[in-house]
Design a protein around this nucleic acid. Structure first.
Lengths: 176, 176
DNA sequence: AGTGAAACTTTGGCACT
DNA sequence: AGTGCCAAAGTTTCACT
């Protein structure tokens, strides 16, 4: 559904996610050694673990672990430390995966659409992709009525949205 | 997972129950009040914030914030505290969104497929959905060669996988 | 829910390989 | 480069009010 306007130009006003992708910015990237990887393996899944416990597992002192964590935060290897909150607990019982097909696919049009989605609280993830659609959105809402409201507010009125397809999530397994 | 134990226990201010995601398990029973929500809003995005800073923002003592966080952890409202690690830093430069169509769609077949995907380290997210495909996977790999390896190891050999479609992620806008 | 003491964790200085 | 040890600073946890 779309030709090869290859070079992505989606790195505009938003945060510094690009830093990690490019690997360069501010602080230089050290190569991760085996210790770093093992620390990340453990820490990634549970940030409440004390450095001493991690150190014990990987064979390093707590201080060394802390130093490495700090460096990885500064380099952008660790992008954020967040809490995963049950959507259901917040009353967001419905998740949909939406494939969006745009009419025009020039850099500015893509950029504009992405920026719109970034402002939209229901959109939890937004991927710009090759293949059947141009964008894939993960949308989290209260219920199907709220989803319809979402499409009527953010997709249907957009002149550049040619079509979209919806898949309703019935269950979800593990995440990273 | 079984969609059987539906019936969300945590009822938010807006009473509506959608399809319950695999969500709240354990020992729940407590409604989130306005304080809880404001704490979550802040804490969700950055778990390194001290309880005192959060308390200042919401008008509670550090201890009260800690107590509420602890309770929300125990109730399953806070499911995990994790670190977001740059995929690129780990050498995982390629993300694909894969729609999988199964041949048989009985409960055991679905469960079996989901269990397989849960064991597969490349699969970062796995959604069971209605619509064009049966499952949607978010797959993270080193490069396209590694993706082909993934499909040859996990999808193609599976008798029950009728077909799959791949979308390669060119850019991603993070959660709002 | 708040206060304050005890327990724990992270942070920074210093010596060392 | 990097680490480990130890003490100071900061955070969480657990009495009790």
């Amino acid at each position: 559904m779309h030709a090869g306007n290859a070079r992505t130009v989606l790195q505009p006003s938003t945060p510094r996610r690009g830093a990690a992708l490019a690997g360069v910015r501010g602080h230089p990237r050290h190569v991760l050694d085996a210790f770093d990887r093992r620390i990340l393996d453990i820490y990634r899944a549970d940030t409440r673990l004390a450095a001493e416990a991690i150190g014990e597992a990987v064979g390093l002192s707590a201080t060394a672990v802390q130093r490495r964590l700090k460096r990885m935060r500064e380099c952008g290897v660790i992008q954020a430390e967040v809490a995963l909150v049950s959507p259901a607990a917040l009353g967001l019982g419905t998740t949909c995966i939406v494939g969006v097909d745009l009419e025009r696919e020039g850099p500015e049009a893509l950029d504009r659409f992405r920026a719109r989605m970034a402002r939209c609280s229901q959109v939890v993830q937004c991927y710009y992709v090759t293949g059947a659609s141009d964008f894939v959105l993960i949308v989290q809402v209260e219920d199907m009525d709220a989803f319809v409201d979402f499409t009527r507010e953010w997709l249907t009125p957009d002149d550049n949205v040619l079509a979209f397809t919806t898949q309703v999530v019935m269950d979800r397994a593990a995440a990273g």
